[in-house]
Each structure stands twice: as C-alpha cells, then as structure tokens.
Design a protein around this nucleic acid. Sequence first.
DNA 1: TAGTGGTCTAGACCACATC
DNA 2: ATGTGGTCTAGACCACTAT
Lengths: 246, 246
Amino acid sequence: MLVKYRIITEKPMLKYEDVAEKIKQMIYQQSMPKGTQLPNIEGLINQYQVSRTTIIKALNRLERHGVIYQVQGSGIFVRQPKKVSYLNFLESHGFSVDLNDLPGSSQVFNVDLMQPNVKVKENLQCDDNEQVYYIKRLRYADGKVYGFEQSYYRKKLVSYLNKEIAENSIFSYVQEVCKINIGFSDKYFKAIKLDAEIAPYLGLQAGDPALCVEEIFYTTSGEPFDFSQIVYHYENAKFYVQSHSK
Amino acid sequence: MLVKYRIITEKPMLKYEDVAEKIKQMIYQQSMPKGTQLPNIEGLINQYQVSRTTIIKALNRLERHGVIYQVQGSGIFVRQPKKVSYLNFLESHGFSVDLNDLPGSSQVFNVDLMQPNVKVKENLQCDDNEQVYYIKRLRYADGKVYGFEQSYYRKKLVSYLNKEIAENSIFSYVQEVCKINIGFSDKYFKAIKLDAEIAPYLGLQAGDPALCVEEIFYTTSGEPFDFSQIVYHYENAKFYVQSHSK
DNA sequence: TAGTGGTCTAGACCACATC
DNA sequence: ATGTGGTCTAGACCACTAT
C-alpha cells in the first residue's frame, strides 16, 4: 500500500490530518464565507474514502482550530475568519507555521551559555549544574518592532545555538536539527508598566504599557526545553484566541 | 438500562465525560505530583468498564485541558499544576465553572435595552432594528477590582436581563434560564494605555497600563449572543493558557 | 522483544433539527 | 418522518519506548 509522507518531518501522513488539511484547503481555495454549509459526513466519507470515525476526527480538529463548527442535527459550517492584523496567540511560536520567524525578522543581541538563575532553573526543571543558552533579541514584523524577547534553552536538549540561528527561526532549528518534538506549552501573561531598561528597546518610554508573556515549552515526552519572557509593544502586537466548549 | 444525568442541565451524562471527570478526581484527590504515571489504557478500561475508544476520548479531553500528557510507547502522566493567582484565560467566562461569578462580585452601573452601535451590531451580526442589552459593571475578586466590563447581549436570544442577574452570573442565567448552549468564542486582546474615563473605575491613573480584551460568544448553533469589552487592572488580573500540539 | 499509546475500521444506536 | 451530527463498541494493526 502507498503511504504518504509529510514533506518536512518524514513522519507518515495520518489520514485524519490529511483529510483535515484537504477540507481546510477546500474552504480557503473556494473562499467560502462564514456560515457556508459543507457536505454532510456521508458525503465526506465518499469524497475522501475513509471511515466515519476518521472524518469525525478530522472535523473535530478543524473545529478546535476555529475553522468550522458543527451543529448536531443540522450540519457543518464555515466559521468566521479571524480579524486581520491580530496574531494567533497559541501559534505565535511553536505549533504551526510562524510567519514572523522569517530571515531578518530578529535583531539578536547575544547568545550565551550560562548557569540559569533560580527562576529559570525552576521553570525549566533543570538539574544542578545544568547549563542553558540565553538569547536576547528584538522581534520585527512588517518592519515594526513588536516584541523584546529573553529566552532560555536547556543545553541538555538543544546542544548548540548561535546568532545566525537566532536571527531566523529557533523553533524550526530545534525541531528539524535537534529532533525535538514539541508537545505542549504553558503561557502566563499580564499587562505591565515598562521599566527604563526595556522601554528603549521597543522605542517607548518607561511607564508605557506592555503585554508581558512568559512561556514554557515542553517536548512530547513532557520535558521543558524553552522558557521565554516576551515583552510586546502595546501598539504593534495584538492577539486572538479561539476556543471551543467541546 | 440506567442512564446517568448531569445535575444541572439534565442532559444525559456521556461516558467519556464521566470517565474524564473521574480520572481528574483521582488525580486531585490523591494530589498526585506532576510526572506521576497513571494506569495504562488496558487498566483504565478494566477500571471504568468502557471501550478503549471511550478511554482514549476521555484522555484526549484531559490532555487538551492541561490535566495530563500522553507519551506514545511510554505512558500517561500528570501535568504540571498551574501557577496560583493566575486565571484560566479560556475559562474566565463561559465554558466551565467561573469562580469569580459569585454573588456580590460585581458592581452593576446599568442594564439598558438599546439599539447597538455599528461595532456592536457587526460583532453580534445583528439584523437592522434588533435590540441589545447593554451592561456596564465592575468585577471584583478577593475584594479587589480586577476588571471594568461593558457587555452587549442580543435581546433576540437573551429576552430579559436585570441588575440582580448582572450582579451574579449572567452566564449561568443565560444557560439555565434562557437555555442557551455555549458553543465557542473569539477573544481579541492587547495592552493599552488607560484613558481618563475608564481609569477611575479601576482606581488607576490615565496613562496606566491595562489589558483590554474583546470577546464574542456564540451558541452551539453558531449565533453570536454576547459581545464584551473588558479592561483588566494590570496588577490584579493575570492569566494563563495551556495548549497542546495534538 | 514486550509494553505502551495512536490510528483506523465497520457498524449499531442516540440526540437534535427541520419540515 | 427524515436527515444530520454524536457516542460507543470490539477489534485489527501501527508507532514509539524501554529493556
């Protein structure tokens, strides 16, 4: 039997991922407006030649990602497109394609190997004497500064990093070269008053507002590998999150 | 056959929800630390007497809610408990129990029936001449002001509202009395500078930072019923979001 | 090699929506 | 009454981890 493979990761293509992707393409290529009804499950089974369960799994995935919504007894419908100029908060690093991780989108100040302080050590669950890479960089999008980031990667899991990698996408490197599979993440955030140290990086004044986000990323086996603190420019960075009760 | 029912909604209890809840209880009652391994799937099948698929569905739900993580070939493990004093951003209204929606936790300024302005009309997809309830209130938690909220509910879907309801939980009322089933939501957020009009409500100065969130809640059939703008106190409101790549 | 989670199937039956 | 999505089952087989 012919087995499809993902282009990048070389993992076997799962049927439900494949079907989900194709349905998504169908929606976007035909630029269906919100509320458009899709074929029913029976129809999708015939169209993609997979079992009912696989169709349902694909639909649930699309529902969680905000692409469609399903109404029992009624049908499957296209969901509202997100407002433009807002970033997907859950995909702003990591899980899916990150449009901001393009070459030249980061100004890197340093990439240092060091002993973590207490806070970093705790968040990354480091052993004693374990070392971490410390990266400080400014992030740009559309030519505008949108965030000041300080991140820490465990050397144990990310054995090498340099300035060039940090200027591009650390997450692509970590996945493709270090073979780290990203499993899940915790994000903590709040509004803050910018201090005199960070404000200049963003071209703002001390006392100006900012969105401060602390993130911890874990591998699929549950090991934390990245702890980052990002301070976002209050005018240049806006986010959205779509969620679902199911 | 005996069918279990949910206490409040009187909907039949689904097996996978039931199992998920029981596993969650097991974790919390035994206060298992993060990393604790749970029984394997075979064991859970025997313990709860349901099919493999149902166990897996329950586990996936717990995984999405940040309670556990599953490692293929290895096992099922308890995930890190969230930092205290942070609110779950996705559950801060709506989907699950809202600890802040307790009696006396809101100071209500007005509950008015009115014609929506353009922005509200668009976000709620109102027909022409449709009316909305406009509620303005301050939200408290632990005796501290944490947010200033302006919300709009479509009269078409929420036929009646008053000050007393707004002082308690609008969402409970909407679900239990109006029989609205909450399906999904869109949330947009950014840091802002407080203006002179809103700052006093939060006991802050104009120019101080704040987290501004705009939310749209939809019924399970995809109709928007609530549009809210909430301005959060930058010192009293902190949030977390847990996410998963699966 | 043995054990664990993950995918996929075919089919029965249930719950909700619409007419 | 009919059509739609949702749940649940039993079982085959695949993919990853540990030893």
